[in-house]
């Protein structure tokens, strides 16, 4: 049997099982919390107009937060990888034929599924809260689809790379600080043109800004482009930057993952368990 096919098939099953577990019972409340908070924020921004653009902040922010939540896939992958390295899930995968491939496939399915669920939780009520989105045409959904796909690949492969380099769930916690900073300057909640130019340049180096831009280009009417840098949706640049991150992640992630997996053993898991228990106790 083809090992890659096994890993993909078993990994898909694994991802779906974990997705179901993660969205049942108390887990569901945890998943709903942030999207609901975001919707409340958008609700209060629904009537605040932005300058002379004719758009409200709520209308501009809804597509942007879809981009932001897509980018959260990166943090999710980092958290999963560090936590499951500590608790021995990864070692079990290593002890199983094609286990690491199946594990990773499963993780990407779980995280992508989680993100899709977040987007649905945000978008469906969001459409009732804000006016002025352009979602009638097939073009909107096609754009949304490719931005989403490229974004999922770019952010999760980078996440897998960082998650292999960071050795503890604590380190993963620190990781979220710079990410939050990048999100803050990425024009998600407030248009980037209002920021100083040097911050705009930093923001444009990372996927978060481009995910937000791509989502706005998909869901906002053409006139909204006036709010953007250069008054353009810059699809080519979006593909360029997201694509570059995706390529970097896809090349680097397997290398660092293999290196990380090679070092896993019963005693390394036992050592981390000791440390973690000391932290708790």
């Amino acid at each position: 049997m083809n090992p890659t096919a096994t890993a993909l098939r078993v990994g898909l099953t694994r991802g779906l099982i974990e997705l179901r577990e993660s969205f049942s019972g108390a887990g569901l409340v945890g998943h709903l919390f942030w999207p609901v908070v975001t919707l409340v924020a958008i609700f209060f921004l629904r009537d605040r107009s932005f300058g002379a653009s004719g758009f409200t902040l709520g209308t501009l922010a809804l597509p942007s937060v879809l981009g932001m939540y897509t980018a959260f896939g990166m943090l999710l992958v980092i958290q999963y990888l560090t936590a499951e390295r500590e608790d021995g899930t990864l070692l079990r995968a290593k002890a199983t034929p094609n286990g690491i491939g199946g594990y990773l496939t499963g993780k990407l399915v779980t995280v992508s599924g989680t993100i899709l669920a977040y987007l649905a939780i945000l978008l469906i009520p969001g459409l009732l809260i804000v006016d002025g989105l352009d979602i009638g045409g097939i073009r909107s959904w096609l754009t949304l689809a490719w931005v989403l796909l490229l974004g999922l690949v770019a952010t999760q492969s980078i996440g897998a790379m960082l998650g292999s380099l960071i050795s503890s769930p604590r380190g993963a916690g620190y990781m979220s600080i710079p990410v939050m900073g990048l999100i803050a300057i990425s024009g998600i909640f407030y248009p980037i043109t209002a920021l100083p130019e040097w911050l705009q340049w930093i923001a444009q180096g990372f996927p978060f800004y481009w995910l937000g831009l791509g989502m706005r280009s998909a869901l906002l009417p053409g006139a909204a482009v006036g709010v953007e840098l250069g008054e353009s949706w810059r699809h080519l640049e979006t593909i360029g930057v997201l694509g570059a991150w995706a390529v970097l992640g896809l090349i680097m992630a397997p290398i660092v993952l293999r290196r990380m997996a090679r070092r896993e053993s019963g005693s390394s898991v036992a050592e981390r368990r000791e440390k973690a228990l000391q932290r708790v106790g």
Binding site: D87, G88, T89
Partner: peptide, 16 residues
């Protein structure tokens, strides 16, 4: 790998 079995000590993996 498929012919070898390893009994690992679980801690909290796959808890759900």
């Amino acid at each position: 790998r498929a012919r070898v079995g390893v009994v690992l000590q679980s801690w909290r993996d796959h808890g759900r």
